[in-house]
Amino acid sequence: MATKVILESGQISGALEEMAGQILSSAGEGGSVALVGIRSRGELLAERLKGLLSDLGAGEVDCGTLDITLYRDDLDQMGYQQPTVRSTEIDFDINDRVIVLVDDVLNTGRSIRAALDALIDFGRPKAIRLAVLVDRGARELPIAADYVGKVIEAPADKRVQVYLSEVDDTEKVILE
């Protein structure tokens, strides 16, 4: 299958740095910011943003991980393809915080819908923002990202795959 590189390793870092800058300048208004990554790539991106925010002088930002499996709207259709349910690890109080949800790719918006429901079961944040590395369009729900690394128009039959050096042998975003 023909693949096309959307972001090279350096561009991923650049995009994340820019997102961290934007988060620092805007998300903090009216409350203290915390990051919550959606398993599994979002978790890694949230950790990176945490590091970048700290480099920018934001100090130690709380960072948690959300597993959305139990909140998916396609559980009945997924059957055997279901990922293993993993734990959600948010060891700070999310009440009255500004939570930045972090995911790798924004597509239909259904994962984010599930994540919003899951997050709200942990408390009532002051606001929830969304940061994604790639927005590939084709939304099925009225959901938009606040911080985006790269916007592309991906044909419906193509997959956007994010590889990160923490868990993959390479670091890039491709369209395949």
């Binding site: 499996t69 139990l70 349910v85 993993r86 959600t88 709200i120 079961d121 408390g123």
Partner: peptide
Amino acid sequence: GFKDISERAI
């Protein structure tokens, strides 16, 4: 993965 359900607000 189900442990935390019993420990949170809702």
